[in-house]
């Protein structure tokens, strides 16, 4: 009959394997983050600096004068978290505090929030100034994807 207890050697091996696995880099499975605009919008690419300004209310218009209507996703959304950390370099709490300050000092309104990417895509498709960020798998022919130029 086998002992119900593992040997010290087996335990040591298992611990080392577990440690090695925990230290291995974890790759998050995101396809590709893209910014989308209305398909009639001539914008081809957009800088991360400009996206930061758009999402903090500092930039309100495209180069052609169209008022930008940025769309956001809800705070727990993974695509939003990815966009905020990789592109905007903002954490959720700092962003929330920033917009509370902006609202109560009369400086503007935060981007409208949607529950999912499908709603954000529909919003951009039906608003000429619409702009949103989605996973590339959500892009369809109703909108146009633009390239994000990350800051040097």
């Amino acid at each position: 009959m086998r002992s119900p207890y593992i040997s010290r050697k087996t335990f040591l091996k298992a611990t080392l394997v577990a440690l090695a696995l925990s230290l291995a880099p974890v790759e998050k499975a995101f396809a590709e983050l893209v910014v989308i605009v209305n398909k009639n919008n001539p914008t081809a690419s957009i800088r991360a600096t400009d996206l930061r300004l758009i999402y903090n209310g500092g930039k309100r218009m495209f180069e052609n004068g169209t008022v930008i209507q940025p769309a956001n996703l809800q705070p727990e959304n993974e695509v939003r978290n990815d966009f905020f950390s990789r592109v905007l370099h903002l954490d959720a709490e700092s962003y929330r505090l920033y917009w509370v300050r902006m609202i109560f000092s009369g400086k503007g309104k935060p981007p409208v929030e949607f529950e999912n990417e499908e709603e954000a895509v529909n919003f951009v498709a039906t608003n000429k100034g619409g702009l949103a960020f989605v996973d590339s798998s959500s892009v369809d022919s109703s909108i146009k994807a633009v390239k994000i130029n990350l800051d040097e």
Binding site: V100, R101, F104, S105, G106
Partner: peptide, 9 residues
Amino acid sequence: NEIHDATPA
């Protein structure tokens, strides 16, 4: 001053 004393902000 523009935020004034808006407690949440």
